[in-house]
Write a protein that binds this DNA or RNA. Sequence first.
DNA 1: GTCTATAGACCGATAGAC
DNA 2: GTCTATCGGTCTATAGAC
Lengths: 214, 214
Amino acid sequence: MSTRTLAAPAAVIPPAKVSFKAQMLAVREDAIIQAVNRLLAEKGFDLMTVDQVAAEVGIAKASLYKHFPSKEDLAAAAMVRVMQRAQAFLAGLPDHARPLDQLKAMVRWMLTLQLAGEMPSLPHHNSSLRTTLVGNKAYLDGLMQVSDQLGGWIEKAQADGSINKSLPPVLVLYTLYARACDPVLEFLKAGGQHSDEEVIALVLQTCFEGLNAR
Amino acid sequence: MSTRTLAAPAAVIPPAKVSFKAQMLAVREDAIIQAVNRLLAEKGFDLMTVDQVAAEVGIAKASLYKHFPSKEDLAAAAMVRVMQRAQAFLAGLPDHARPLDQLKAMVRWMLTLQLAGEMPSLPHHNSSLRTTLVGNKAYLDGLMQVSDQLGGWIEKAQADGSINKSLPPVLVLYTLYARACDPVLEFLKAGGQHSDEEVIALVLQTCFEGLNAR
DNA sequence: GTCTATAGACCGATAGAC
DNA sequence: GTCTATCGGTCTATAGAC
């Protein structure tokens, strides 16, 4: 990651060589992060071992530590990637849509990610992991940007009357974020009575419409 | 536990002695379970060590294994206790209330338990733990009874029009259960802007009323 | 004196780190 | 590929009850 930002200007060092090395690093790092992401989604942080990551990528465990100094940093890198994907998704949304629909689209994206087994699950407890995440600027920046975007839509949606004005915006934001680790998805999927699309539609409905009849 | 069910009739063995030993065992078992429950709520299963449990109870680790054959069984015992508390709470509810209010009362109870730091948090991943739980009759029985009770109220609430009839009852049940590990509580509490009672009221509202304006 | 339960050392495995 | 720490689980010497 830092190799790219610290790379010398193209005029000083032949761009092809630097770009090649950088590409190599980037490609392998991406493979690592993808493996970490998948394993985090499948087993969670605690049950994921660094050996499994190395095995899945097909490299030596020691090579992992050339890229990431600890298991916590591996998880953080996966979260950074998720944030980048989230930002990319948000950037691709049509900006003329209703704020409520933007929010629903975002939640739908998170639910889809979770059902696809690509949503990392980190334990809320575990102080070392939290410390690493809080100290990761890329992650925090991504989280802040996403939160700002969503927060803006929330306020707009409350202003236009589509979201309950009496709810604190931060509650709405947290409630949306919580869908990223909603166990209801897993339960419903395990029941086998509904397709993925139905599961998503149901959870979206309970999230925005609630359980009460209208 | 089996000592009591296998105890000889009072006429054969002095009841005081048996009762004393049994009481000792029961009291200590309860202390163990209480400690496990607290540690499970505070740190989660993976970060809880049996040494910590022994230290908190004030007994030797080996003594723990006189009562429970494994760490997983410790967690299961804590869950059994939670289920018993849930059943006791349900039994204490006025049976003339509206089904919707019964459900809300139950969710409120779960949220209160969580805020009090008494709701064990178990990792959904972790096959050995799941195996132990599935094999624990007391836990399964408790879960089934609670689910039957809630399921009955859900159907009644849908029949009387207070809960959305288009939602599968099992979705409603899972959505209620999910409040037991809702990260929104933790987030809101960390924000420090709301009292516990406000947090509970807000989460209850989003759960039943949703985020949309009515 | 015997028997049980305890305390605390101890072991083996596993996983993170280098 | 090794080193070390940690943790789940066991073993043994001992203290205290009867």
